[in-house]
């Protein structure tokens, strides 16, 4: 009988977050990573990109995503939800910390913040005593985080594993059209479109239920890699 640890079949529900989170945040952080005015330091370029892109199998992003430990920026989002008359507009800021997670803070039309870490999704609330976290969902997001790291490390080839990737344009203005390879993910996400030049400027989602999301990123301050104390609390797994 031994430890012979018997095996149980386990079927994983579509980990939508596992796919969406890295795609969104992995690219969303590029504004902070490479502000347009600043030339990319040579050391951060892992494979020099020819100015006459695109070459068929080299994604235009390759080598461009320098990955400082902490990146932040601001966003404007428009969501069109089936059955609702008006599009939902929101703005706010975000922060990605390597090996820790992501904070997505909505400032308008109301203030709300969530943190996504390896251990789950948390709602963040500021009160007199400081920041409190409440679990919205607990569970392993290891692979999602792994994807974020890969993209952060300038390995957008990781996208290839999850999506069919079609690219248009040149290195100054490119478009990537992503379609999920996984039929289960495809039940939820129809397509994702990324647009940008030296950085990602826009992400558009089309969901299978007809909802559409468009997020515009704008340049952000580089906060030098330090986390504010409330951010450290938000990431405490």
């Amino acid at each position: 009988m031994k430890n012979r640890s018997a095996v149980r079949m386990r079927i994983r529900i579509p980990a939508v977050a596992a796919i969406c989170v890295p795609v969104l945040f992995g690219f969303g952080l590029s504004p902070g990573a490479a502000p347009p005015a600043k030339p990319v330091p040579a050391a951060a370029v892992s494979s020099p990109v020819s100015p006459t892109l695109p070459v068929s199998h080299t994604l235009p992003l390759a080598g461009r995503l320098a990955a400082p430990p902490v990146l932040s920026g601001s966003f404007a989002q428009e969501k069109i939800i089936v059955g609702l008359k008006k599009p939902l507009l929101s703005r706010g800021d975000f922060l990605v910390a390597r090996d820790k997670g992501v904070i997505w803070r909505t400032l308008k039309p109301f203030a709300a913040a969530v943190a996504v870490t390896q251990k789950g999704i948390w709602s963040l609330k500021q009160n007199g005593a400081g920041l409190t976290r409440q679990a919205i969902h607990q569970g392993n997001l290891g692979l999602a985080m792994d994807m974020i790291q890969k993209v952060l490390a300038g390995d957008p080839a990781a996208l290839d594993k999850v999506f069919t990737v079609a690219e248009k344009g040149d290195s100054a203005a490119w478009t990537l059209d992503l379609k999920p390879l996984d039929p289960i993910v495809a039940r939820v996400i129809l397509s994702i479109r990324l647009q940008g030049g030296r950085r990602v400027d826009r992400v558009e989602y089309a969901e299978a239920n007809g909802d559409k999301t468009r997020i515009e990123f704008s340049a952000a301050a580089d906060n030098g890699g330090a986390l504010a104390s409330w951010q450290a609390v938000a990431f405490r797994d």
Partner: peptide
Amino acid sequence: YLPPGVSG
């Protein structure tokens, strides 16, 4: 208001 997937 959260991007798709993030809220679960």
